[in-house]
Write a protein that binds this DNA or RNA. Structure first.
Lengths: 198, 198
DNA sequence: CACTATATATGACAAACTGTCATACAATTA
DNA sequence: TAATTGTATGACAGTTTGTCATATATAGTG
């Protein structure tokens, strides 16, 4: 998290740094991203940067936090539009996300995140994350077993992210889509033949 | 992959470098691992290293490849001992792996891999990987739907790895174990109540 | 106002790391 | 023996990172 000093900065200066950081994190993979580039781009002296953030990771986490909000809002919208049905929501989420990222080629940051930042993807998926807290009320639980919804949700979320990553990476969207839909089916109905299930 | 030059080296010299690398990758996280340390430890000149490997990632991939074999053998053993039953196998795999890593504190490399190398964990989990090819014949498919076994297997594998990582990270093995077992149950029987399933 | 204390800004710097390359050496072949 | 090819080596240039002494601004106080 940024220091109070950073938050005290007038928002234009803040934004300049954040913009430079977004650009860097949207262009190269995490390992290659350098504080040097960012401060040069933003025109901020070295010492100042370390006054604001502990290090590259600290800055990245903050950037991620800011972007998370958009993703959460997006997700909630989709779930609502599917009347809270998990199965339908996650089928839709894949299409909506990949469309956003691949077809429209919007959000370079998001694309780069899925491509290279798998270790950070976890920050979204981990249980205890606020994503679930904000989403749980929108999910319809009537038809579900009384199992812990949080675990189920993360299972879906995780596989959604894996699917999107794979789609972005390989660019074979329709193949991966097929796979993904099968996975959702398994998550919903299990792996066993009918006779074993009942 | 290492250059032919490296493979031509007498095995003692090879091992010296690999040992140093294993030590490094077992101690610090990937980002912090440095070629410098490794060559110093191994007593190998800088230039020589770059004669053998392209860079740190190249070396790490090779190390991973070598270790993968052990893990695959391990996995096959467990599946065999469970008569090829997926559900039972993966329940057991979690216990066996966490026991190996946490309780016995064996394999520091494995532990470190689960802790810090999530981006590399993928190399195991990805479809198309030889792990599945070597394992598929051992799995009993009688009770399973005719769905693509590979997808199912990777779903299980993935969640196994996520579970182990979480267990190693938090050290709350029994909590994570409970969660994991619930996930396996969902994977096997789905998320819906009985009446919806049939 | 003058003075003090506290917060912020800055860039030079040491330490570390990476990948390359000219040079030296060894082995093999003609 | 000479030439060709493969291997070894460490000095070097180019980066990067995080720190710190110093400078400057801001706020508080009597």
């Amino acid at each position: 998290m940024p220091s109070q000093t950073f938050l005290n900065l007038d928002s234009k200066k803040q934004q300049k740094l954040l913009d430079a950081a977004m650009e860097e994190f949207s262009t190269v993979r995490y390992t290659e991203a350098s504080v040097n580039h960012i401060i040069q781009q933003a025109g901020i002296p070295r010492g100042s940067f370390y006054m604001y953030f502990v290090d590259k990771d600290d800055l990245f986490s903050y950037i991620l936090e800011l972007n998370k909000k958009k993703i959460i809002a997006f997700t909630i919208d989709v779930i609502r539009s599917c009347q809270g049905n998990l199965e339908q929501s996650f089928l839709t989420l894949f299409d909506v996300f990949t469309d956003e990222i691949i077809t429209h080629n919007l959000s370079r940051f998001l694309k780069n995140m899925f491509l290279y930042f798998s270790m950070y993807r976890e920050k979204f998926e981990r249980p205890g994350h606020d994503l679930f807290l904000q989403v749980k009320d929108v999910i319809s639980t009537e038809e579900l077993k009384e199992d812990d919804l949080e675990i189920v949700f993360h299972l879906f979320m995780h596989n959604l992210f894996v699917g999107i990553t794979e789609a972005v990476k390989t660019n074979k969207v329709s193949d991966i889509r097929k796979q993904y839909r099968r996975i959702i089916h398994i998550l919903c109905y299990g792996i066993y033949k009918e006779d074993k299930r009942c």
